[in-house]
Amino acid sequence: MIRVILIDDEPLARTLVREYLQAYADMEVVQECNDGFEGVKAIQQHKPDLIFLDIQMPKINGFEMLELIDEPPSVIFTTAFDEFALKAFEAHAVDYLLKPFSKDRFDKAIQKWKEQYREKKTNTTTTKAIVEEAATMPEQSQRVVIKTGSKIRIIPVNDIHFLEADDDYVRIHTADGSFLKKKTMTYFEQVLDAGLFVRVHRSYILQLAQITRIESPDNEHHLAVLKSGAKVPLSRSGYPKLKAVLGV
């Protein structure tokens, strides 16, 4: 039995997919979810073979939801209209359903997916690539979504004091404490607005608005002191870079 989860904030949209799926005796809808939060929980609980995922949803969108799952299941995206997402799908040759879609179009998508599924070619790497690309979308680049235990937290980028490399993770320091996200520093350097954030060290990115002063204990070492009192080391190349950005 192929286990399916439907994630869409519009109940009727789920009704339609469920109805279309009735023609497939080998597929079973194990859960329907109203938003990404429910989606994350359901995916972890049921470990589905396939999810139907809407992009525009409350609080966190479909891409952000996928970002929170370490091993995302294979996905068929469903969306009404989303210029950015469509471009990304085309670029990565990912199949998607444009609402409203016909039964024929739906069947084709299922056939295609089943072939890949049989050949064990589920495309989690493409999914991950799309999710990374989506992080630069204007809407998403304004916030960072993280998961600590079962709690999902949305951090507006303005609330970030600085980022610190931590093995395979990046530690995000905010006024409410620090949070880990499984990403690279390079990833954040690309996603965050270069006018607001500067990578000042191999292991540090800081928000310019948070800096109060720069301390230089000696000619070799320089530190940025933040409003929170935290001291962030500046590397040999990071120091002149920061000075140039600040215009001092």
């Binding site: 949209a13 339609l16 009404a80 444009l98 609402k99 409203p100 879609f101």
Partner: peptide, 9 residues
């Protein structure tokens, strides 16, 4: 499009 999709459902 979402309205049409709802109608379709």
């Amino acid at each position: 499009f979402n309205s049409l999709n709802s109608i379709s459902a």
